[in-house]
Nucleic acid binder design. Structure first.
Length: 331
RNA sequence: GGGUGCGUCGCAUAGCGGCAAUUGCUCCAGACUGUAAAUCUGGCGCCUCCGGGCUUCGCAGGUUCGAGUCCUGCCGCACCCA
């Protein structure tokens, strides 16, 4: 096996320029990119998720990626294969566990072809799943159960969990319904939530991230993680520019198309950010309550659109913030 | 010039005379075991030995044990009549 176990990870908040860096490095070091982005996996969601435009001509340089890599064909951008993009329809349920399995197959395949896997993305949890080799309990979502539990107040769910698995109840966020339901789901199936043994980060002094570079390893692989940090000012500027550009590129049309393909507004909204706000705009449900009185009088189409873009920019900034909080969390 | 209404902590809102004062948004900080662009928590007048202390609701007076809440005047804004 020897040296073929090194993986590069590039992480950072949205609009920090991860993709460009990843592509540059891939070119220089014979790499292939595994996207760790929980929204770029969906087909038909291109502008809103900021996919790097795909190369016109298909076909790969030698050696051709194996088809068996999770059955996933990469798409190429700037001549570099990108995996885990456009792999499913927005209708399909997807999650970390699936991502982990598929991505690991892809990584194996890349390593076998003696190339450098570069994991690049902003979905911290998904990256952690691979780097820390989190073993998710083999309990698939039980939709009927979830639907039932959904109706209960969180306090009740919490006391249910407490009876089933006091240990998990002890460290769970007692007000987070989503987490509570999943924990109960696991308990019903296998008794209790397995204790997670997260691999402690091998890096010294890497808690001061970002910017960070840190080494860590699990049983299979070694990782070099590079975190990208921009000043808040730069980040916010980038976000504003990017969001405005996306609207020019047809962001609204993209959402309209998704709906025409039969996706409910509600489903589209669940993807967050622009996908959350645009359906409201299209349905004329944007609330102007926050606008000043003078502005409200204007009430023009242009105003509505400006307001929409404003909302999306804000959402995007908040998102970046949550990402950064995740990246600098202490394990 | 006459009439009416309104001025509350960034914005927007609530507030039978007992209130440091409601709610939403923004903002700040944080969490994260198969939804992670999701989901969730805390803070948001100032100070604090966390018991409390201090200063607030356009401005200035007044009535009251007590006023954001009532009265008078002023300033500003909105609308209506001229």
């Amino acid at each position: 096996m020897s040296i073929l176990n090194k993986i590069l990870v590039i992480l950072g908040p949205t609009s920090s320029g991860k993709s460009d860096i990843a592509i540059k490095i891939a070119k220089k070091f014979n790499g292939e990119i595994i996207s760790a982005d929980s929204r770029q996996i969906y087909r038909g969601m291109d502008i809103g998720t900021g996919k790097t435009p795909r190369d016109k001509k298909l076909g790969f340089e030698e050696p051709r990626p194996s088809r068996r890599a999770g059955g996933i064909e990469p798409w190429t951008a700037h001549g570099i294969p990108h995996y885990m993009i456009d792999i499913i329809s927005p209708r399909t349920e997807y999650n970390v566990a699936k991502f982990k399995k598929q991505a690991e197959k892809v990584i194996d395949d890349i390593l076998q072809r003696r190339k450098l896997p570069i994991i690049c993305g902003g979905t911290g949890f998904w990256i952690q799943a691979i780097v820390d080799d989190i073993n998710f309990p083999e309990v698939k979502p039980d939709w009927r159960l979830r639907k039932k539990l959904e109706k209960y107040p969180t306090a009740k769910l919490f006391s249910m969990l407490k009876k089933m698995d006091p240990a998990r109840a002890n460290n769970i966020d007692s007000k987070n319904k989503v987490r509570l339901i999943r924990a109960i789901e696991i308990c019903k199936s296998i008794g209790k939530v397995p204790v997670l043994d997260v691999i402690p980060s091998a890096a010294e002094g890497s808690s001061q991230i970002p910017p960070l570079t840190s080494f860590s390893r699990n049983d299979k692989w070694m990782f070099l993680q590079i975190g990208i940090k921009l000043s808040q000012q730069e980040l916010h500027d980038n976000i504003e520019k990017r969001v405005k550009l996306r609207f020019k590129q047809g962001m609204i049309k993209e959402v309209r198309n998704l709906h025409q393909q039969g996706l409910s507004w509600k489903k589209i909204q669940s993807f967050g950010l622009a996908y959350f706000w645009i359906p409201l705009y299209l349905q004329k449900k944007l609330s102007f309550g926050e606008l000043r009185a003078e502005a409200r009088k204007e009430k023009s189409l242009a105003l509505e659109k400006r307001w929409l873009i404003e909302k999306v920019i804000r959402a995007e900034k908040n998102y970046a913030k949550r990402q950064i909080t995740w990246f600098k969390r202490d394990k």
